[in-house]
């Protein structure tokens, strides 16, 4: 949210916390995501990489595509699941 003198105020979903920037390897600016560890930012996370990770997961799913079990779930993924599906006993392995 703000960066000043080696220290950033970071917004963790509504919680504001002071995080030190001593060891982060690239300049951090307001609006960036950071990975926090014991009060120190250890990485700036570019926003586009969040999407990349989700894409990686979907690629992992494709690689398992011979598997019939996954079919119904993939259908659900492509549809818009406004509400998380309820746990049904038959879903459990």
């Amino acid at each position: 949210m703000s960066v000043d003198d080696g220290v950033a105020i970071v917004d963790f979903w509504g919680v504001k916390k002071v995080v030190r920037l001593d060891v982060v390897d690239v300049p951090v600016a307001p609006g960036d995501y950071v990975l926090n560890h014991v009060g120190f930012a250890i990485r700036r996370i570019p926003a586009e990489e969040i999407g990349d990770t989700l894409a990686l997961y979907d690629e992992l799913l494709r690689s398992a595509d011979g598997d019939l079990l996954g079919g119904d779930v993939r259908g659900e993924l492509e549809g818009t699941a406004a509400h998380p599906p309820q746990a049904r006993p038959e879903d459990l392995p």
């Binding site: 963790f12 979903w13 509504g14 919680v15 916390k17 926090n36 998380p84 746990a87």
Partner: peptide, 17 residues
């Protein structure tokens, strides 16, 4: 059902941190 238990977003975030 954990997802049915009401928890405010700020409480959840503070708990995570």
């Amino acid at each position: 059902d954990e997802r049915a238990v009401p928890v405010k977003d700020a409480v959840r975030a503070a708990g995570e941190l």
